[in-house]
Amino acid sequence: MEAAVRVDRLEKTLGPNKVLRGISLEARSGEIFGLLGPNGAGKTTTLRVICTLLGPDAGSVDVLGFDTRTQPEEVRRRVGVVTAEIGVYPRLSARENIAYFAELSGILDGEVSRRVDTVIERLDMGSFAKQRAESLSSGQKQKVAIARAIVHDPPVLMFDEPTSNLDVLASREIRDFMVESKGRGKCVIFSTHVLHDAERLCDRVTIIHEGRVVAGGPTAEVRGRYQDLEDAFLSLVEAAR
C-alpha cells in the first residue's frame, strides 16, 4: 500500500540539542501507526515537522506526495493534529471555535455550517455546542480540539499523547474515534508512551529513542518473542543505550 506520510532520514536540532538523528518511517492510509518512545525521544518534534510547524534540518518529509518544505500549505490542508494541550478560545462557544478553524482551513462559506454540524453530531457535542468554551470540562474541550482538527476532513490525522490529560471515559472516546477514523480510510498516526494503548490500537509501530529509530514494523512483529509490547520496548531501549 502507498505511504500517506513518508519521513526519510529526518534530522532536527532545537537550540543546543540534536533532537532527531535520521528518523525514517512510513505511515499508510487505513491504518493506525504508532510512534512510540520515552519522553524526550523526539516523537513530538517528528510530528511537528510532519505537519510543517517545524522545518527539517536534513532529510525529507512528504504527505500524500506534497513536500513539507516546498508545499507546506498543501500539507496543512491534508493534516489534522490533536495534542494533549487542549487550548481553546474561552470567549467563543464550542461551535464558534470549530467554525473558526473550518473557515481558516479554506472550506467554502456555504459549506462551513454544514461541516460544523456534521462534526458536532459525529462527536456527540450537541448538548454543549453553544456553550462558551471557558465553561466546558476537559473532556468536552478535548472534543472541541478534535472537532477543529477534523472539520476540514483531512486524510491524515495525528494524535500526540491525546489522552494524557483525560479521565478514563474521555480517553476511551478518543481511542474509539481513532479506530473509527481508520475504518474511514484515514492515515492515523498515534504518538504515545502508553504502550498498552499502542498495542491494542496500532497496526504498525516505530519505536524511537534519543532521536533514532530502534525498531519498526507490524506491532506483533515488533513485540516478537516478548510477552507484551512494554517488555519489547524496554528491551529495545536498553539495547540502544
Binding site: C51, T52, L53, E73, E74, R76, R77, V79, V81, T83, E85, G87, V88, Y89, F101, L104, S105, G106, A145, R148, A149
Partner: peptide, 9 residues
C-alpha cells in the same frame, strides 16, 4: 491555541 492556529493553511 497558537499551535492549532498555525496548523491551518
Amino acid at each position: 491555541t497558537l499551535e492549532s492556529l498555525l496548523l491551518t493553511p
